[in-house]
């Protein structure tokens, strides 16, 4: 084989290798990223309430959300979203189903609210406040095994309004969005995000000591 042929062969091998590296890197980015929403949500210190991602009210109005907003820097500068919607308050609850099922309870108000459950591959469930029953929206995110257990333990006479969602992966996050249609509603939107509770459902019988 001539030297030029060898060189062309090496270039060809390099190009094929480049294609493989390209594909592998693109597929690995979501797994390795430390700046994605899931990694950031898992670093949240907010207990039982969504971590404020995009607050829409001005700095001093954040005090209207009692307690939780106090530790956050006021204003909108804290958000990491690339093009945040200035009139939509966003909150995140990270879940790890190894700790137990995740219960998200929201009370609907005058503002439009939507909940979306994201796994690593994308959102697999979304619901708006129009699906609420008597002003309450209860989602329970569980694994297949936890779902079967919940079905087996369900009381026949008790009517449950929980929406049970089987998650494909154990880790993910729930996004709460509340839309403030008018600037005067922005403090209420922030407060509505903070009013959602995200708690780990304690198992009725302590089958597992984990948690």
């Amino acid at each position: 084989m001539s030297p030029r042929g060898r060189f062309l062969l090496a270039t060809l091998a390099g190009l094929v290798l480049a294609g493989l590296v390209h594909g592998v890197v693109v597929l690995l980015i979501p797994r390795l990223s430390e700046t994605d929403a899931l990694s950031r949500a898992r670093s949240s210190e907010a207990l039982d309430h969504p971590m404020p991602v995009n607050t829409v009210s001005a700095g001093d109005a954040a005090g209207q959300a009692p307690g939780q907003a106090a530790g956050q820097a006021p204003g909108r500068a804290e958000t990491w979203l690339p093009i945040p919607d200035p009139s939509v308050a966003v909150g995140l609850c990270a879940y790890d189903l190894a700790d137990g099922p995740m219960r998200v309870s929201a009370r609907t108000g005058p503002l439009m609210m939507s909940l979306a459950v994201h796994g690593r591959r994308g959102a697999f469930y979304a619901v708006t406040d129009q699906a609420a029953v008597r002003g309450a929206l209860d989602l329970v995110v569980l694994t297949r095994a936890q779902y079967d257990e919940a079905l087996a333990n369900a009381d026949e006479d008790e009517v449950s309004h929980d929406v049970r969602i089987v998650a494909p992966e154990t880790r993910g996050y729930v996004v709460v969005r509340v839309i403030a249609a008018l600037p005067s509603q922005r403090p209420a939107a922030d407060a509505a995000v903070q009013a959602v509770s995200c708690t780990v459902d304690s198992p009725a019988e302590d089958a597992k000591p984990g948690g």
Binding site: P30, H118, A123, P168
Partner: peptide, 25 residues
């Protein structure tokens, strides 16, 4: 934002920390 998103969209979302709107939202 859906699980059917292509790998590039997922990678872009992960790199920017974007929380995409899903079909139901």
């Amino acid at each position: 934002g859906s699980p059917g998103a292509d790998p590039y969209a997922r990678a872009v979302n992960a790199r920017r920390g974007e929380i995409p709107l899903t079909i139901g939202e």
